[in-house]
Design a protein around this nucleic acid. Structure first.
Lengths: 233, 233
DNA sequence: ATATTTGTTGAATCGTGATTCAAATACTTA
DNA sequence: TAAGTATTTGAATCACGATTCAACAAATAT
């Protein structure tokens, strides 16, 4: 039998298993057995902890968002210069590539949010939090005289998050000419107009968010929190 | 028995039925029977025309996109002034509300595009076409001296489409403070920076894309091409 | 050590949707 | 009008996922 776990531990594991399963099979297309397999359990065990599957899925989405947001906050926490902070924040809002697990999960939710109020609320809340995050950066930069804002800080922040979101979708959909770097470039174009700051990416800033290089012609590098590439539908 | 139809007619009907069914139940959550019911047929009849359901779904998505794009082109076809043309184009890229059928379908696809190459390609193609559309408007405006572009026209166009996309998702997810009007405002803020043009919405322009007003406290107005509000999942 | 509680399995059952196909029905053509 | 063809039905079957639950095993309490 699989190693027995305490209720709390198992629930955490299940939430993560559900997250992985959803990324592979879709937020709405996941099956109980897929989650169970991902967790190394049987379906009965999953039901024991979550009699209603929907609860588990919601918790998994919630956890995924929380993780995504926390990662962003963490990445910019040490940066003092508003310009560098802004640049880093922009990068941290984009997927690292088409298989980025965190963003994949968020994209899954987009469609469902139209049909499911809970998901809609989750996404809306995340959006608002990200707007607040950008707004703070902008305001501080303006207060320090580094940024000359071309408009209301909330308006600019909303557009920054919107751009991030949209390019996230493009990258996930494997647009041929828009990858993470191109997206950063496009969003920075807007950010420059809005802040009146040149926003040059320093080597240091790039370093911080550059993925581990891929092997020359082997399989793509895999990083923690990333799931295997999806199968064709 | 249901009215018999020619092969071609029936296929068109089925594509539309599939489109409606997908909006109600999700691009991946639709069931054959739901499509059949939407078409007023039995599942056997649907399979007779589309032995592989996936083909029907792809055609339905394709048709939905084509319709969406054609509607946009049509709305701006008669407008000569680049500024009004730009404003109208922006509005036409946004849903008219959270239940807008056309955009709902596109949103459904966002998540699936990460797992399904065909859907990814469809979305990518649509994005590129919309970028080209904006780019043309911008270039013409610049050539006429109406716009003073603050950067590369492709860069601006890409960001315009990206903003549209993202606010479409927000509106579909029922963001409490971002509706069609607010989204237009936010995108126009960016457009003004990019074109150096004040881009005032004339009453005439508003008229063209304003929804029929809702009854004071009855059910929301329903328009052609809109499906009934979704059930909770 | 024994009893009790908790977590897990695996098999049985249930329900639902996809698939098949012979029969029925509506068109088309001769 | 009759024969032939295309479309649709409806019932039967199949496949698979969800759900239930008795039995078992591991942890914990007594």
């Amino acid at each position: 039998m699989t190693q027995r776990k305490s209720r709390a531990d198992r629930r955490v594991e299940l939430i993560d298993a559900a997250r992985r399963a959803m990324i592979q099979h879709g937020a709405e297309g996941v099956h109980l057995n897929q989650i169970a397999e991902e967790a190394g359990l049987t379906s009965g065990a999953v039901l024991y902890h979550y009699p209603d599957l929907r609860d588990l899925l919601i918790e998994a989405h919630h956890a995924g968002m929380e993780r995504f947001y926390e990662q962003r906050v963490k990445k910019i926490s040490g940066i003092a210069d508003p310009a560098q902070k802004l640049i880093t924040t922009i990068r941290s809002g984009l997927p690292e590539g088409p298989d980025d697990a965190g963003v994949r999960l968020l994209c899954e939710l987009g469609g469902a949010a139209g049909r499911n109020r809970v998901y809609g609320t989750l996404l809306t809340t995340l959006y608002d939090r990200q707007v607040a995050m950008y707004q703070t950066i902008l305001e501080i930069g303006a207060a320090q005289g580094v940024f000359k804002l071309a408009g209301d800080s909330e308006q600019i922040a909303r557009n920054l998050v919107a751009l991030e979101d949209a390019y996230g979708y493009r990258i996930i959909a494997r647009h041929h000419s828009i990858g993470p770097d191109e997206a950063v470039g496009l969003i920075l174009d807007f950010a420059r107009m809005s802040t009146g700051h040149p926003l040059k990416e320093t080597p240091a800033a790039r370093q911080k968010t550059t993925r581990t290089p891929r092997p020359r012609n082997g399989a793509p590098a895999r990083r923690a929190g990333t799931t295997p590439p999806p199968q064709e539908a």
